[in-house]
Design a protein around this nucleic acid. Sequence first.
DNA 1: TGCCCGATTGACAACGATGTCAAACCTAGT
DNA 2: ACTAGGTTTGACATCGTTGTCAATCGGGCA
Lengths: 349, 349
Amino acid sequence: MTSLSAQEAGNRPRPTMRQVAELAGVGIKTVSRVINGEPNVTPETTQRVLDAARALDYQPDLHAGNLRRTDRRTRTLGLLVGSVDNPFSGAVHRAVEDAAAERGVAVFASSLDDDPERERQAVAAFLRRRVDGLILTTATANQTYLEPELQRGTPIVFVDREPSGIETDAVVSDNAGGAARAAEHLLAHGHQRIAYLGDLHSIQTARERRRGFLDALDRARVPLDDLPVIEDLHDQAAARDALLRLLDGPNPPTAVFSAQNLITIGALHALRERGRQRDTALVGFDDVELADLLEPGVTVVAQHPEDLGRIAAERVFERLDGNNSPSQRIVVGTTLIMRGSGEIPLASA
Amino acid sequence: MTSLSAQEAGNRPRPTMRQVAELAGVGIKTVSRVINGEPNVTPETTQRVLDAARALDYQPDLHAGNLRRTDRRTRTLGLLVGSVDNPFSGAVHRAVEDAAAERGVAVFASSLDDDPERERQAVAAFLRRRVDGLILTTATANQTYLEPELQRGTPIVFVDREPSGIETDAVVSDNAGGAARAAEHLLAHGHQRIAYLGDLHSIQTARERRRGFLDALDRARVPLDDLPVIEDLHDQAAARDALLRLLDGPNPPTAVFSAQNLITIGALHALRERGRQRDTALVGFDDVELADLLEPGVTVVAQHPEDLGRIAAERVFERLDGNNSPSQRIVVGTTLIMRGSGEIPLASA
DNA sequence: TGCCCGATTGACAACGATGTCAAACCTAGT
DNA sequence: ACTAGGTTTGACATCGTTGTCAATCGGGCA
């Protein structure tokens, strides 16, 4: 009533099964049976128990039950993504959540920030809480530290980036293929001097995209020597600055491939600032919101984060359901979406 | 080694303190002391225990410990947001995660989808897992169902939307104020016939924004009777369709206030489709990515979701630390960001 | 030498639930 | 009326850990 009521912390202790049993005038095991929907309880007893539980606002303690339960399932999943704040990660997260919610499973989410130390910490935090399975985006060079956990039967599925030093499932985008597609698209519009703006070299997908990009140019016999290939751009500002330098330098690129969503946004800023958005072609990897409303629209190689997340979650649940077929690497294709910026032809100037 | 290794599920059982104790040749309580950093263990014993723990890849079971521990803290928080794949929610989530991670607290995140039933389910799932505190965006008309939990001392902080029927902390944006600011801004540029495009009337913030908007117009003595006020637009497509109808109808609005980020995007689409983006003014509530690169740039009343999340989390931790001052309603201001679309003057046509 | 006191250690109960098992209670068939 | 067999129920041990408490050990001091 008064604003004090909320603050009388630790007032009533939380009711336990024992108290429900007492109120209902039955044994504690009977309460357990009712709460868990086990058979062989008369309707009258069931009702008495339910009434008592309602009256006390009883909430079973999942973890206490787990301790004794034979399956030892916490109905909890650990999810590690780039950052819960990034739209790509958000879509992955949402798909995982939906698949999990269907099964009454709750999801712990953590942000990686491409920091190996954060990864170890997050995984340890998940394991201490006894998650039933892990869906991980990794920042470590090597995940052998997870081997013992895998041996214990905990399903671990990597998402977005492939694992290394460990044999387990992975669900990833076709990074090299998508990057190659972007390069070929720009080549087809006459460009040869294409700048590559990439994320940290330590990130596996960044290396894959770079490889796909360079391989495609190489196949087209474009000399790679003096190509502007810039890596380790980890945020919008860095990408913007890098492209500004290229645009202001001698022999600026006629086209740009930005290999990640934040980099694309940085590149867009740089192009606008120099008024070059209508003569410098741009293809981005990963879609960005509103890209279709810019002028010109931003051509992108779109990933399908919802699929990545959904498939990864389904894989975890299959493993939990006993499927122990050999581990698989599932590749989700990318989609080139042409909106204008990627179709700007090489200026005849 | 072979791909089978990962599949021999349930191989080795997970090691317990008992096994660490056995391997180290000490009592189980001594292991507990070492793991928890309690004093009065000799350095040699400590080392033996740590070695044994390492050798077995021991991970303490946080929940088992909790069962016995006097503070009963799971070091876990439940967070309910609109949708983990909405940028606004993502920013709130990230801020909460950062504040929590500092304290070794893990975060369960769930999406609400403005569905009261999902809210009950998510909250129940959190409570069965004994989270230490709740940070909630609500979709129910009334949250008295949380009263017993509040009485037990669980900190509950509402974020983004205010609670009703319950006395507890809330951290919200200045919705009415921000909407009024948007209206005044459009009025200042000569507009009177301003369309309001709003979210579900059942959402408290949507009602607040509508109220702020209408009050501002009323103060300016704009007749509200035949103003195009459209509510219950819950996604981009609905917003686009609604605005298209207005633009195509008789007496179309000269300015638009879109009261939520997805609605703003839908409105942008509609304006482009009719080629009206340069003569119809637009102010959106909540910022959207790339809004600055559109032509014209999108003027918005930006919220500060990071602040909402951070403050809400801090409030929870203060409560957990024993602060039991009266519950507070903390209002975070909004910021008008002028980028062009909101400064389009009334056409002299 | 004997005693006191603090440091170190481990046995044991307990946290809230479920699995096991046996007791009590029906019902129907003879 | 009596028994077989199924249904309903609860006592008790147990899950992995921490709190309590008592036992042991090793000095330091009278």
